[in-house]
Design a protein around this nucleic acid. Structure first.
Lengths: 347, 347
DNA sequence: CTGAAAGCGCTTACAG
DNA sequence: CTGAAAGCGCTTACAG
C-alpha cells in the first residue's frame, strides 16, 4: 500500500542511497536531485518508516519511562516536565507500566523491568518511583543502556530526587516550633520507601525537640490502592487520629492526596487540627494546605536532560540532583481557633 | 555486545530459522532442539530485538496514544484504564504529545498528528481530546491505520465519549429544580469543545425552565493554561461571579478542577453558593463537590478494547460508545444557609 | 555528488 | 522437524 524508498528511487531515476540522503538532510546532494526526489516523495506521500530506520541505524529514537502502574498525581506532574523537555529533542516517549508494590526487594518487579530492557526498543530508560536494593540496581548494568532515576538514588545511575527525610523533618519541626507538642503522622503503606523516609524525618524532628517518639504516633488507613496514597486512606488514618485518646494537637501527613482525605475527616468530625502535607500538588494551594514542595515538573525535565546527555556521551560522569524540599506555609498550618503561633518561614 | 540470532544458531548448531521458531513458540520444533537452543540463548542472555521483529513481521506491537500536551486529571484517569486493558494484551503503549489548543480547526495540530502517523511506528492509534472538523478527520484515512477516538465523535472511527450537552443539562436542571433562579456558569476557553457543549446544555436547561439565557451568565477566568481547565481559572471566574451585581444564587462549573478554585473563591469572599461541577474526579468526593460523572477509566479501557479488536479485524463495523453522564449529588449542591430545596436524584 | 553493495536482526514461505 | 534463501525498509562506508 504505502510506498518505500525503492518506489521513490525508481520514479525519481536515482538510487535508494540518494533518496535516503535526501531524507537525512545530507548536504552533499545536488539541489536539482534533492528537488526531484522530494517532488516524487511528496506525490507518493512517502515518509521513511521509523522501524526500518531504527534497525539500520541501530538506535530507536525512543526513550522509555518505566513507571509503577499505581501512578498518581506525582507522576502526572513529572510527566509534564518530561514531555516539555522532550519536545525540543529528537526522541519520542514510550511509557511502560510495572505492577509493583513499594517494596525494595521484589523479584517479580525486577523481571518486569528486565523484560522491557530485553525488548531493546529504546535508546534510554527513565525509571520512576521504583525501588531496588543495590543488587537489584546492579543487575540492570548488564544491558549497557543509559538509565536515569527519578525519585530514587543509586550511585551508578544519573538521578534526580528529593530529600524526603529532610522534608518530613521540616514539616514536623514547623509544627513543633508553633508550639504543638502532640503530633501524629498519617502514613501510607508501612514498608514503602516514602513512608520509611518520611517517618524517619518525622521522628528526627521529635527527637531533636526532646519529644518521645512512639509507634502509636503513626496512623495507617486501610485502603491499599496505590500503596495507600489515596484520599480514602488519608480519611481513614485521620479518622483514627481524631478518635484516639492521645489528644493530638497537630498532624504531619505523608502526602497531599491523603491530606485531602484528612481534611474531609476533620470536617466530618467537626474538629480541626493543624496539618502539613507532602508533595505540594497543584491543587494544594487552593485547599490552603501547607505542604512540602517537591519540584516534580523540574524533576521530569532534569531526568530527560540527563538521560539525553548520557545517550550522546556515555562516558561522562554520573550526576545526582537532590532537592532540599521547601516548606510552603498556608492556612492549614494553623489551628481553627485562630491562635496562630509564630511560624518559622523556611527557605 | 549483545548476541543475535546468528550467535545462538552457531553455538547451538542449528539454523537461524530454527532459533526464530523456538522464540516464536512454533510447535514443530523437536523438544531436544528446543532445549538446546534455549540453553544456549540463556547462557548468552539472548532476547530477540523487538525492532528487528517489527520490521520482519510488519507490525510493531505498539499502540500510540495521541494526547494534547495540556493533559490533565481527565487524561490521567483515562490512562489508567488504558493501561489496565493493555496489561493483558500483546501491545505496548506509546504516548505522543501534541501542542494544541481546543480549537477544531488547526492546521498545525493536523500536521503534528500527521507526523506521528508518518513514522509508522504503531499498529493503532488512540486520539484523546483532540478535535477536528469532518475534513480534518477524513484526512487521516489515507494512513489506513486503525484509529479509536476518546472524548470525541466521528462517524468513521470507533469512539467512546460522553454526552456533554446532556451532562451540563442535568447539572443545571438539578439546580433549577432546587429552586435557584439566577444561575451562572464558570466556563473555560470560550471556543473549546467542552465549553461549547457544556454551555449548550446549560442554556438548554434554562430555556426549558423559561429562564432567559444571556451571554452575561457565562464567566471566564483569565488563566489560559490547559485551555482554562485550572484551579486558578475557576478561582478567577468565580470571583467575578461573586462580585457581579447580578445577584446569582447558584453556579454550574465547567470542570471539577475549576470548581476547586471556585470553592476557594467562595471561601475567600466568605459567600457560599450552591455549585455543581463536571468530571467527578477522584478527589471531588472528598470536597463534597456535586458533579457530573464521566467514566474516564472505563473510557480508556473501552477505547483500547475497540482498537485492539480493529487491529485484528479491520473489516468489522465501526462502533460508538456514548455515555449518558450521571449526576452525583453531594453537599456543594446546597446553599450554606442549610436551606435544602428538594433534589431530583438523577439516574 | 552519486551508486552498488553489504548490513541492521529478524520472519517466513518453500523445499525437503 | 529443519535449513537455505529471500525479504522487511532502511543506512552507510566504499569507490568513483
Amino acid at each position: 500500500m504505502s510506498s518505500t524508498i525503492y518506489d521513490i528511487a525508481r520514479q525519481a531515476g536515482v538510487s535508494i542511497a540518494t533518496v535516503s540522503r535526501v531524507f537525512n538532510n545530507n548536504p552533499k546532494v545536488s539541489d536539482v536531485t534533492r528537488d526531484k526526489v522530494l517532488a516524487v516523495a511528496s506525490s507518493l506521500g512517502y515518509h521513511p518508516r521509523a522501524m526500518a530506520q531504527s534497525l539500520a541505524r541501530r538506535k530507536t529514537g525512543l526513550i522509555t519511562a518505566i513507571v509503577p502502574i499505581i501512578s498518581n498525581y506525582f507522576f502526572m506532574e513529572v510527566l509534564a516536565g518530561m514531555q516539555d523537555q522532550l519536545a525540543d529533542s529528537e526522541f519520542y516517549l514510550q511509557i511502560s507500566n510495572i505492577k509493583t508494590t513499594g517494596e525494595v526487594r521484589s523479584d517479580s518487579v525486577r523481571k518486569e523491568v528486565e523484560t522491557i530492557f530485553n525488548r531493546g526498543m529504546s535508546d534510554g530508560y527513565i525509571i520512576i518511583s521504583i525501588h531496588f536494593d543495590d543488587t537489584g540496581w546492579d543487575y540492570f548494568k548488564k544491558f549497557e543502556r543509559p538509565i536515569a532515576l527519578i525519585d530514587e538514588y543509586y550511585s551508578d545511575y544519573d538521578s534526580v530526587s528529593v530529600n524526603s527525610v529532610e522534608g518530613a523533618y521540616k514539616a514536623t519541626k514547623s509544627l513543633i516550633t508553633q508550639g504543638y507538642d502532640r503530633i501524629a503522622m498519617v502514613c501510607a503503606m508501612a514498608d514503602s520507601k516514602p513512608v520509611i523516609e518520611r517517618s524517619t524525618g518525622f521522628r528526627k524532628a521529635l527527637d531533636e525537640a526532646g519529644m518521645t517518639f512512639h509507634e502509636n504516633l503513626l496512623f495507617y488507613g486501610q485502603d491499599t490502592e496505590r500503596d495507600g496514597h489515596t484520599e480514602l486512606n488519608g480519611y481513614q488514618a485521620m479518622s483514627a487520629i481524631l478518635q484516639s485518646d492521645q489528644n493530638f494537637n497537630a498532624v504531619f501527613c505523608n502526602s497531599d492526596i491523603q491530606a485531602l482525605g484528612a481534611l474531609k475527616a476533620m470536617q466530618d468530625f467537626n474538629k480541626k487540627l493543624p496539618i502539613v502535607g507532602f508533595d505540594d500538588l497543584s491543587f494544594s494551594e487552593f485547599l490552603g494546605l501547607s505542604s512540602i514542595r517537591q519540584p516534580m515538573y523540574q524533576m521530569g525535565k532534569i531526568a530527560i536532560e540527563k538521560l539525553i546527555r548520557r545517550i550522546h556521551h556515555p562516558e561522562i560522569d554520573v550526576t545526582h540532583t537532590i532537592f532540599s524540599p521547601e516548606l510552603i506555609v498556608r492556612s492549614s498550618s494553623f489551628a481553627s481557633d485562630g491562635k496562630q503561633m509564630p511560624i518559622e518561614k523556611s527557605a
